[in-house]
Design a protein around this nucleic acid. Structure first.
Lengths: 148, 148
DNA sequence: ATACATGCAAACATTTTGCTTTGGC
DNA sequence: GCCAAAGCAAAATGTTTGCATGTAT
């Protein structure tokens, strides 16, 4: 398995971690599985709970925190801005886009998987302002169909 | 002066506040002036400092906090996601768009005032997912021309 | 004169770190 | 066995609230 492999799975990420010299522990397996199974961004607490279900023992909050910080640095997860009081994280498949649609009323979060609506704009803006290595964070907020 | 007036100034906002039954104090004048003069989103601390320069006396942090919460509820300011550890706020001229370009290296923030790149996409997404009252939060992150 | 706004201080929530023990390699 | 990872607990940071006093109306 090499770095340009087109798979992105708990296994491939585990390999990536190993290549970084990191150890694969029960906690880390649980956290990875939690991230991969979730269909929406998760708070550290949610990751902690979900991880404990998978591996039977609940990792300490600090452990989750350090693991996620690590993965963020390695671009394996990214933070999502849900306009709430704590941070939410999501696994980062490099081949995917992660724009979100959030219901202001019930909080439900939908991942938008249609092609990224602003790829062109991004390039234009980079050029205009002399910025490079552009990425973006895009969240839509509205009221979903089932909310009054 | 009526609500559909096309001006958006410290004076017009002051009027809006008065109409809400709020009192115009030295602190509030300072905070308003700070918000209007800034070319980038400000933290509550920054607002506090800037306000104190303008009116000579430094409002308490809690006072700034309550004022900004109030203005947020009235849609006179909005929060901006700069991926930092505290919240940033910006005055909300209803006729303008507020998308941002942030340098990952030096933190410099540029307001993008070209026409909003995703008006159409927004409508499409609303339709597709059955959401209404859509708004969005869009920030670009990159490295600016003056950073290595 | 009457509320609303303020300052101060404390409570709260969340994130981050230090240090000892555990366990993957 | 060695060193990274985990657990525990405390510190640091940022946000929010309660209450007595000041002040715009």
């Amino acid at each position: 398995m090499n770095r340009s492999d087109s798979t992105f799975t708990p296994e491939s990420v585990t390999e990536a971690l190993r290549r970084e010299g990191l150890r694969i522990t029960r906690n880390r397996r649980g956290i990875l599985q939690a991230l991969f199974e979730s269909v929406r961004p998760m708070s550290l607490q949610e990751i902690q709970s979900a991880a404990s279900v998978h591996e039977g023992s609940r990792p300490d909050y600090a452990t989750v925190f350090r693991m996620i910080m690590l993965m963020e640095k390695l671009h394996l997860v990214h933070k999502v801005n849900l306009q709430r009081s704590c941070s939410y994280y999501e696994i980062s498949d490099p081949r995917k886009h992660y724009d979100h649609l959030v219901c202001r009323s019930c909080g439900n979060v939908v991942l938008i998987d249609t092609p990224c609506p602003i790829g062109d704009a991004e390039k234009k803006i980079a050029l205009q302002h002399g910025f490079r290595d552009l990425s973006h964070s895009l969240e839509f907020f509205g009221v979903c169909a089932t909310c009054p």
